[in-house]
């Protein structure tokens, strides 16, 4: 370990003289040990994926889901301490529900991210609590259609409402990542956990962003490939791939956050496994395999 707190790491809400909150930094370490999770925002939706580390052979396959639905159109995945993540999900659901109760409409992804960012930040302020040991990735699809009031009856003019500002787009896919400090940004591709270096490098190669042409189905395949690639077969424990997606109202999930159908996932997984194997074999040709782990660790320090 390069830095030691020298007493400034014993509690939250105490800065070190050089302006660091060590508890938050240790929380980041907890995330770095967790299974890799990623999110991809493409032109017609969002994909979330996680490398679910199988802690024991006695656990039921496919059970103990790691990706959670927060509202119909919102999903969350996280890396780090699972109980912390579960609490994060519970709180997110409460926030989404509270928004619905007051405004009678689904919470926009940006507003959920903002509220949860604020919530996580609060856990860096007080002696009595510790920061969240997770980095959470929040994906959502805000409806592009007109938003009714929940429960309303009746309808507007058959010719459509008059006076809309033409040419403006509303809603769409959104992706946010929230770190233990409470810091959050919007992303086209986000990665957290053990394999985030590899994952980020791969995400950067994808055609995302403003004019990105990657389709939702391609994004699912890319997500699977990236999780498999970031997984270290030699060093890491076995894992299950868990994936969910959200499309617009006219897409495959009809605006809802859902688990990627088994058939599609398995297809993506098969291809991902093949590509990952090929990549590993390629690596072996190039350099000494034993050192690669250490290299990765150094890279970690540079990044965070």
């Amino acid at each position: 370990m390069t830095s030691i707190g020298t007493g400034y790491d014993l509690a939250n809400s105490i800065f070190s003289p050089d302006g660091r909150n060590f508890q938050v930094e240790y929380a980041v370490k907890a995330v770095e040990n967790g299974g890799t999770s990623i999110g991809i925002r493409c032109k017609d939706g969002v994909v979330l994926a996680v490398e679910k580390v199988v802690a024991s052979k006695l656990l039921k396959q496919g059970a103990n889901k790691r990706i959670a639905t927060v509202d119909r159109h919102l999903g969350v995945v996280y890396s780090g301490m699972v109980p912390d993540g579960r609490h994060f999900v519970d709180r997110s659901r409460d926030e989404a529900l509270a928004w619905r109760d007051t405004f009678k409409t689904p919470i926009p992804t940006a507003d959920l991210a903002s509220r949860m960012g604020g919530y996580m930040q609060a856990y860096t302020l007080y002696q009595s609590v510790r920061p969240f040991g997770i980095t959470a990735i929040v994906g959502g699809f805000d409806s592009e259609l007109e938003l009714p009031v929940d429960g309303e009856v009746g309808s507007g003019p058959a010719v459509g409402a008059g006076g809309k500002t033409a040419g403006k787009k509303h809603g769409g896919p959104f992706l946010y990542m929230i770190e233990p400090s409470g810091l959050y940004w919007g992303y086209y591709g986000a990665a957290a956990g053990k394999g985030r270096q590899v994952a980020k490098a791969e995400l950067e190669k994808l055609d995302l962003g403003g004019a990105g042409e990657l389709s939702l189905e391609q994004a699912v395949k890319e997500a699977a490939r990236i999780i498999y690639l970031s997984h270290d077969d030699v060093k890491d424990k076995k894992f299950e791939l868990e994936m969910s997606w959200i499309s617009g109202a006219d897409g495959p999930t009809k605006g809802k956050h859902q688990e990627v159908p088994k058939a599609l996932r398995e297809e993506a997984e098969k291809e991902a496994e093949r590509l990952a194997k090929k990549a590993v074999e390629g690596d072996d040709d190039d350099d000494d395999d034993d050192d690669s782990d250490d290299d990765k660790k150094d890279g970690d320090k540079m990044e965070e």
């Binding site: 990706i67 959670a68 639905t69 859902q258 688990e259 159908p261």
Partner: peptide
């Protein structure tokens, strides 16, 4: 109910 993500 939709918190259960897997429709199958």
């Amino acid at each position: 109910e939709s918190y259960e993500t897997d429709p199958s």
